[in-house]
């Protein structure tokens, strides 16, 4: 017996709230919500459905905890983000992972980051990502492109 989507749920929550302890709270709350809504579930993709609940839970939590910090982050360009020293969440992630790549992803605006991680780490199709994030497939494509471009630029690999 296992909980096959628990790892995916935890990864998404972690990338969204960027704090392992809070991420696990988010997952636990999301799993409870998922169980509560089981009887009404008529979808075709339990993983996408669960991640959608995780995402909503995470956004609610971010809003409560940080006074819509996520919205503030999303309004800023990648380059204008505060450095890790002034961003406790980014610093925490950096300290734990020590990866440049990891920090670059953590510094992406939330709306780009969630789509990038669902594609690259959860191997979700555009359609599935659209289900999880509630945006059209075309928006998934353009945000994914912007996310990848930002990462390429962060590594000095200027897009051709």
């Amino acid at each position: 017996m296992a909980l096959p989507h628990l790892d995916a749920a935890t990864r998404l929550a972690r990338w969204m709230v960027r704090d392992p302890a809070r991420a696990e709270d988010v997952v636990q709350e999301a799993m409870l919500r998922a169980l509560t809504y089981f009887s009404g579930f008529r979808g075709d993709n339990p993983r996408a459905w669960l991640l959608q609940i995780v995402r909503t839970t995470a956004l609610t939590r971010l809003g409560q905890d940080a006074g819509r910090r996520e919205d503030v982050l999303e309004d800023r360009a990648f380059e204008a983000l505060p450095s890790a020293e002034h961003n406790p969440e980014a610093r925490l992630a950096g300290e734990q992972e020590h990866g440049l790549l990891h920090r670059a992803i953590a510094a992406l605006p939330g709306e780009l980051r969630e789509i990038l991680v669902l594609r690259e780490f959860e191997d979700m199709s555009y359609r599935e990502i659209a289900m999880v994030t509630g945006v059209p497939v075309g928006t998934v494509m353009s945000r994914l492109f912007r996310a990848r471009r930002a990462l390429m630029q962060a590594f000095g690999e200027q897009p051709a």
Binding site: E24, Q28, F121
Partner: peptide, 23 residues
Amino acid sequence: LRAEVPMHGASEVLRRRMTARFA
């Protein structure tokens, strides 16, 4: 991304807690 970024799933604590609760 796939080679360098660690892919941590749920911690053992969370997994045990969730398994006990749901499974």
